[in-house]
Every structure is written in C-alpha cells, then in structure tokens.
Simulated scan of single mutants.
Amino acid sequence: MLSSLVDFIRAMYSTDDFIPLHAPIFSGHEKEYVATTIDSTFVSSVGKFVDLFEERVEAFTTTGKAVATVNGTAALHTALVMAGVKVGDYVVTQPLTFVATCNALHHMGATPIFVDVSQVSMGLCPIALEAYLEENAHLNCDGMCIHTETGKRIRAVVPMHTFGHPVQLDELQLVCSKWGIVLVEDAAESLGSYYKGQHTGTIGEYGALSFNGNKIITTGGGGMVLCKSAKAGAHAKHITTTAKVPHPYEFFHDEPGFNYRMPNLNAALGCAQFEQLSAFLKSKRIIATQYEAFFKGSDFEFVTEPEYGQSNYWLNAVICPSKEAREALLAVTNNASVMTRPVWTLMHKLPAYENVPKGALNNSEWLESRVVNLPSSPILELS
C-alpha cells in the first residue's frame, strides 16, 4: 500500500525528483508585475498593486473591505484588535491549528481557551463550544461572557478552516450570538473555500487570509483582513498604516497603530498569482479526487470537504487507521523523497500554552495521532 502510494504520487506529478508538500507555481505575469514595481521605485507600502490586490480579493470574496497586511499573523492580529480583544481577555480557539493563531493572542496579552474540533470539519466544534461555555462561563448583567473561575471576559471565538475545509459556521455563529462573543474566522488556509455558497472569512465579523509561500496563492509573505463593513475596513486600513492622518507633509497619528501594510512588491506578485487562482482551484480539486479514488476501499480515510461547503483542498490529508500506520506512512514516503507531514503538535502540548484553560480534546488528540498531509501543489496540466 505505502510503496504504491509513492508510485501513485510520482506518477501524478510526473517526476522522479523530490516532491514538496506544497510549492508555489509561477506561470503567469509574476516577473513582469514585480519588474514594473521595481521600475516605478514604489516597492514599499504605497503603489498601485496594493490597491489592485485588495480590490480583487474584495470582489472575489464579496467582503465589505479587504485590507492587505505583511503576513497572515498580522492580519489575524488586526482582526482581533478590531474585534475588541484586550489585555487579560480570553479567546476560544482550537488546539488543532498552526501556532500563529495562539502567538497573535499571546502578544496581545490575551489567553487562548482550547475547545475540541469536530470530525466533520477538523475545525472548532460548535457542540464542544456550547458545552464548554455552559459549564465554565456565564453572562453578567451587561450581557458579557465571563469565565466563571477567573472572572475574565471571553471576548472572541476563532475557528480555523483546517486545510481549507469550512467549519460549521451557522452553528458557531448561533453559539457566539447567544453568549455575546465576536466570531473571527482564521481563514488563512481557505482562499477559494465556501460555506453554503459564501466565501470563508466573510461570515464572522472579521476574517484573516494568508499568502505565505505555501498557500494556494502567494505574495511571498502576506495576509489580508476581511471586514464585513467598509467602515470597519477603513479603520483596519488606518491602524495598519501606523494610524497616520492623511496630510501632504505632516506626520500626525491619532491612535496606536501598526506598520503592517503589505509592500507593493509583494502585492504585484499577488496580483499575478490571483489571475491564476481559478486554475489552481480546479487543479487541486482534481488532485483531491484522484487521492480519494486511490484510498477508496483501504484502511486509510481520505479527508473530503463537508457536505455543507466547498473546500479549496489546500492541503490534502489522509486519516491513518492507527498511530503506527501514520508513522509508517511518514517514514516510507519521506525516505522516498516524497514529502508528507503529520498535523501540527496540538497547541496545549506546547510549553507556552500547556497551562491555559481547555475542555475535553478527544477528537483533537485522535486526529493528531492519525492525520498525514500529502503533496498538494497545483498541477496546471490538470486544469
């Protein structure tokens, strides 16, 4: 089975060379647009490509306003600031996530609460969220959600669309509305994914995208804040540009801000990548279909999109029948120069976050011991 998997992946990618997990594809106007930026000398945070990239993502996701940032962590940090998260607050998120989610909270002076994921989506489970709040929180006289044991406010909930698979947003939104909590979507991995026809990152009050080198399209490093309203988006743009009040020559900043704006150089790359997004999405869906067919009838379960949503299949994943089978798959493929990776170490097992509040994490623990990501780079010939 495992040797045939290596052969299958090599045949799909038509190479005997090393196969990475997810490599960027530069087959469009990347060099042209980046060269245009260099020739213009506007390589920093001012330039036409920044505005153009924001406009294209805004139109594609149909969000109120999209604000480009230097990376996905900066986008999430900005979204959390916009959501009102403050020093001392709690924010509920999932332990099965990339560490950037928790790092953003840590550097804000906030603390994560870990709640289990759903096996439907591998993202935050609304049933587990409701159960945790019923047992550990209450609403005060002002309608604020308070962590009963510590008296701290639970300000926001941050689900992540794991590997591009949409979480159960309607159910999560209902829980958040009941408890007076802001929903912020960590959509770093889900550009091109939809929940009941609506793009991920646009259903919560704020969302955050990533354009890191391993994402479905890349700006080298970059992110985007998705805001429901144009007014909120204008404020997000303001605070990410050092909160500088526009003036021909005076420097006046009317509130604390961040130097988080995406450089024009990166946005130029993003614009060229965005022109190929539909081809990338089509290719990745075909790759996922081929993986699903390969694993059908085996003891390995290929992870498919939930019935209520459409995934971009950013990183394909398979659930192994046991931890031993996971270790064997990782060893055989990587020894054959086919990159596969286990899912991230769960956040509550990291030294920085081992003592934070958490609920029962049975699904997260089970998935951590079994999930393996498979090579998922787009193959344009398929599209």
Rank of each mutant, 00 (worst) to 15 (best):
I286H: 02
S210F: 07
Q273A: 02
G223P: 07
N214C: 12
M224W: 07
T218P: 07
L277Y: 00
Y206T: 10
T289V: 14
G223W: 04
A279S: 08
D254H: 00
N264H: 11
M262I: 13
N264D: 14
A232I: 09
F211Q: 11
H238T: 05
S278L: 06
G207C: 07
F252N: 03
A232H: 12
A230W: 10
A267N: 11
N212W: 15
M224K: 06
K231R: 15
S283Q: 02
L281D: 04
A268V: 10
H238N: 08
L277P: 02
N212T: 12
G213V: 14
L277A: 04
A243Y: 05
A232N: 11
P248T: 05
M224E: 03
H247F: 07
G221Y: 15
A208H: 08
P246D: 01
F258Q: 14
P263F: 12
N259D: 15
A236F: 09
S229D: 14
F258M: 15
K237E: 15
A232S: 11
F211R: 11
Y291K: 06
T241N: 14
A236Q: 11
I216V: 13
E275M: 04
L269Q: 10
Y249Q: 04
N212S: 15
T242P: 00
S283D: 03
D254M: 00
A243H: 03
F258E: 12
F274I: 09
C271T: 04
Y291W: 11
A208F: 08
G222L: 08
I216N: 03
A272I: 04
P263G: 13
P263T: 13
A232G: 00
L277G: 02
Y249R: 10
A243N: 01
G270K: 08
A272L: 02
A272Y: 05
T218L: 13
T242Q: 11
H235R: 15
K237G: 14
P246F: 06
R285Y: 00
N259M: 15
F294P: 01
I239F: 01
K284D: 09
S283E: 06
I239S: 01
Y206N: 09
I216K: 01
A288C: 02
A230I: 08
A267F: 11
E275R: 04
A232K: 14
A236W: 09
K284W: 02
Q290N: 08
N264I: 13
F274Y: 03
S229C: 07
G221I: 15
Y206E: 07
F294E: 01
Y206C: 09
F251V: 13
Y291S: 06
F280S: 07
G233I: 10
L265T: 14
K282A: 12
S210H: 06
G257T: 10
I217M: 13
Q290T: 01
I287Q: 02
M224R: 01
P256E: 13
N212D: 13
T289L: 15
